[in-house]
Structures are given as structure tokens and as C-alpha cells.
């Protein structure tokens, strides 16, 4: 089944629970991680858009990684970043056209959305269902990201 984030910005109230959930889900050594998802201003009054990695087919992050630390996880479909392999050259951060490879300064890591191994915390905690992680069919009208 093709799981995707289904985003309905009109339902997003900008509460940023997703960011919080992500941050906690990626805690290391008892310290929160940097959130990989952002509830951003959609350009209109009261319109917020949750933005996170699109797990691109032809991903610029993976192409730019010279030590092949970013690879497709065959189970989750996510582009996973291997922190052990990463040499923090920041190529992916600069190359991602959606700004979804990030620098986690606290942990001195480059981070990106890993779909929480198949069960993203952000979607689970969204109070308004503006963000859902569910199987999608080709007939979906909504922009599936």
C-alpha cells in the first residue's frame, strides 16, 4: 500500500503540535531533536501549511551526498540518512529544493524526516487531521505530498 502524507492546509490551525511531536520523537541522549516538520505561514491570513520532506523520487539530497549516506528505505519508502556515515558536508542541506535537510545544531547532526520508521509521530498527534499519513490511491484530488 502506498502510504503518503495527506495534507489539508485549510484544516491546519498552526498549533505546531506536529513540530513538538517530531522533536520529541527524535530525541537523543535525553535531548529533543530539531523538528523535521514545520507549520509555516501559507501566504494568506490564517492559512498554515505543514511542510516536511517529500521523499522525492529523484532526490537531490541523495544525489548530492558524496558518501552515499542517504538511501531509500525499502520498507518505509523514506530517504533515510545514516548518521554514522554522514560527514556533515552540508551538501544535501544546500541542495534540497524544499529545505527539508536540516542542521540540528544541538546534536551537531544533519537531519531529515525518516517517517519515524513508518509511523510518523507528527501525523499521529495532529489534532485537526490537517496532516494524515495514510494509503492513497491515484484518484486522490488533494495534493499528496
Amino acid at each position: 500500500m502506498n502510504y503518503r502524507f495527506v495534507v489539508k492546509p485549510e484544516l491546519c490551525i498552526g498549533c505546531r503540535t506536529c513540530e513538538l511531536a517530531c522533536s520529541f520523537a527524535h530525541a537523543r541522549n535525553g535531548k529533543q531533536g530539531r523538528t523535521r516538520i514545520f507549520a509555516l505561514d501559507g501566504g494568506f491570513k490564517d492559512l498554515f501549511v505543514p511542510v516536511t520532506c517529500l521523499q522525492c523520487e529523484d532526490a537531490a539530497c541523495a544525489k548530492s551526498c558524496l558518501v552515499n549516506a542517504i538511501t531509500r528505505n525499502p520498507e518505509t519508502g523514506a530517504m533515510d540518512l545514516d548518521h554514522e556515515k554522514c560527514v556533515r558536508c552540508m551538501a544535501c542541506v544546500a541542495a534540497c529544493p524544499f529545505g527539508c535537510s536540516l542542521i540540528d545544531e544541538q546534536h551537531e547532526l544533519v537531519v531529515k524526516c525518516d517517517l519515524c520508521g513508518g509511523d510518523p509521530a507528527c501525523a499521529k498527534f495532529c489534532p485537526t487531521k490537517a496532516l494524515e499519513y495514510k494509503p492513497v490511491t491515484v484518484t486522490a484530488l488533494r495534493p499528496a505530498i
Partner: peptide, 19 residues
Amino acid sequence: DASHREELADKMGRITRWS
């Protein structure tokens, strides 16, 4: 990266409003 994200949010906002 931050500007990239803003651009993305902006685009998605437009689509949403349009749809």
C-alpha cells in the same frame, strides 16, 4: 533551506486557496 521551505509553504497555500 528556510527560504526553500517558505517557498514550498507559499506554493501549497496558493493551491489550497485555489482548490
